[in-house]
Amino acid sequence: MNRSLPPSSWPVAGRLVLERDLRLAFRRPGQLLQPLAFFAVITLLFPLALTPELERLREVAPGVLWISALLSSLLALDFLFRDDAQDGTLEQFALSGQSLTLLLFAKTVAHWLLTGLPLAVMAPLLGVALGVPLQALPGILAALALGTATLSLVGAIGAGLTLGARRGGVLLSLLTLPLAVPILIFGARATELAIKGAGYAGPMYLLAALAVLGLTLAPLAAAAAVRIGLE
């Protein structure tokens, strides 16, 4: 019988879940590009709607980049738990004896690596199309990387809550966007300062504070939400 096999430790379990989600994602690379394509399309609509003049576009660039990034990240959040819930693997996570908070945190990290980070890396390139000077690129990347991480953590709660709800996708945005307002405010301000070439440490600290808050509280709420959503 197999009770002789040694029990698995929590770091191993977390790593396995992270590895599984990354492997799964790269089995369907098409899906990985969707949020990025969505991000590009939205960002490139603004010049068409507003003006081709780079001068004026630079003015709205922070807002455009951040709102487009948040929406693109939210798009992918809807499937964070939904697929696993449908094929029954999420239930097995809840019954594994490992802390569900940890396993879902690992999934959220995977989600950020697969959507948040790529969006942050891509943002500066789109920023150039909005007249953003080159020296602002690292600032934009850093702010967005941090901001999307916090959004993934907060969004995971909404993803869990809307698991068992009708029309979950729309509801997820309604639940998550109000909670993402602080991220948007600090993030857009950091990007604005980066574009102006000024020091953007201030808002970055505030973004970091939100990230730490998200890191500590959000996974607990997400686990509770998923446990309720699984019923």
Partner: peptide
């Protein structure tokens, strides 16, 4: 199997 049971047992 590796990912599912790996959460419980070192395989």
């Amino acid at each position: 199997i590796r990912y599912a049971v790996g959460l419980r047992r070192v395989l």
